[in-house]
């Protein structure tokens, strides 16, 4: 009976005492890093996926159900990034606050202008194309700014007493990031138009943001492992098209990546997709700085 009243109290919103931190769960560490930046000491953030993981294929560990049961805010990338593992976890979490559409469920992709939203008829012969667009948008600093801003709004709604803190931190994050972004863009300006091959379509936003051009992918279609025939035509195209870089996340098969780079006369760069994906990439600025510097070094 006591616990029942406790639940009623929770329902009435008596749970947000002034000192308590907002309990937030982020699906990926890049989202986690942005929440840390916006929430600071007012939030307690746990990330489900690790930075070295393929974010499409995370195991739905039962321990995640425990985390989701207690959380006040679930932040996901959306655009089907987590569709293979998040829905059953949420369904089993018995937490009304994080159900789809609830105030404790934040889908970062919402209200962003995503790239590659399919316009024609979509079917799976084209590979696992995400119907809402390419979900790897956080590598564009401008979109990361928009996510930070929207997160501040959401945190303010959940924790109105600390609106000022969230606003201030978000503004400072956005200002710093825009300043850095200008510098990053300047550093990569000399290499504008460089043709690049990536493994998966995971760096499209990054390439677009910094003026590099995607010439092809090692995967023939999203989510499909390459065949010998595809690699042959890719390599031939790389030579004639003057592709200088092959970019692949560290978790992609080394042999295939090395072969493509060698036979296509290009340089192989292993770049992390997520915060925590390589040493020095402990926050969002670190991740972007790491990737920009690596490209600068490779093309110099």
């Amino acid at each position: 009976m006591k616990t029942y009243f406790l639940f009623l109290a929770l329902m009435l919103g008596l749970h947000t005492s002034a000192s308590a931190k907002v309990n937030v769960v982020a699906t990926t560490p890049d989202l986690g890093a942005i929440i840390e930046a916006v929430g600071g000491t007012d939030v307690e953030v746990t990330c489900l996926a690790r930075g070295t993981e393929d974010p499409h294929f995370v195991d739905a560990r039962p321990s995640f159900i425990r985390l989701l049961n207690k959380t006040e805010l679930l932040v996901e990338g959306g655009a089907d990034l987590e569709i293979g593992w998040l829905p059953p976890l949420v369904n089993n979490a018995r937490n009304a606050r994080i159900l789809p559409g609830a105030s404790g469920r934040f889908v970062a992709a919402e209200n962003l202008a995503l790239m590659e939203v399919p316009t024609g008829k979509l079917d799976r012969s084209q590979g696992d194309v995400h119907p809402y667009g390419n979900p790897h948008y956080l590598l564009d600093p401008e979109l990361a700014c928009q996510v930070a801003d929207a997160l501040a709004t959401r945190l303010s709604r959940l924790d109105p007493e600390r609106v000022g803190n969230y606003r201030k931190r978000a503004e400072s994050f956005v200002t710093t990031l825009r300043k850095k972004n200008t510098l990053w863009k300047k550093r990569l300006t000399p290499y504008c138009g460089t043709r690049v091959v990536t493994y998966h379509k995971s760096f499209d936003y990054f390439l677009k943001a910094f003026g590099l051009e995607l010439a092809g992918t090692v995967e023939p279609k999203p989510g499909v492992e390459p065949s010998a025939a595809h690699l042959k035509s890719l390599v031939a195209g790389m030579k004639t098209g003057g592709v200088r870089l092959v970019i692949a996340e560290p978790n992609r098969p080394a042999r295939i990546c090395q072969r493509v780079a060698r036979e296509g006369d290009a340089r192989l760069l292993r770049l992390p997709l997520l915060v925590g994906g390589a040493t020095g990439c402990d926050d969002y600025f670190g991740l972007m700085e790491h990737n920009v510097a690596a490209i600068e070094r490779a093309l110099r």
Binding site: R50, D54, H56, F57, D59, P250, N251
Partner: peptide, 11 residues
């Protein structure tokens, strides 16, 4: 019991 390395491609 399941083991999956911290760095994996498509699981």
């Amino acid at each position: 019991w399941k083991w999956k390395p911290a760095s994996h491609n498509k699981g």
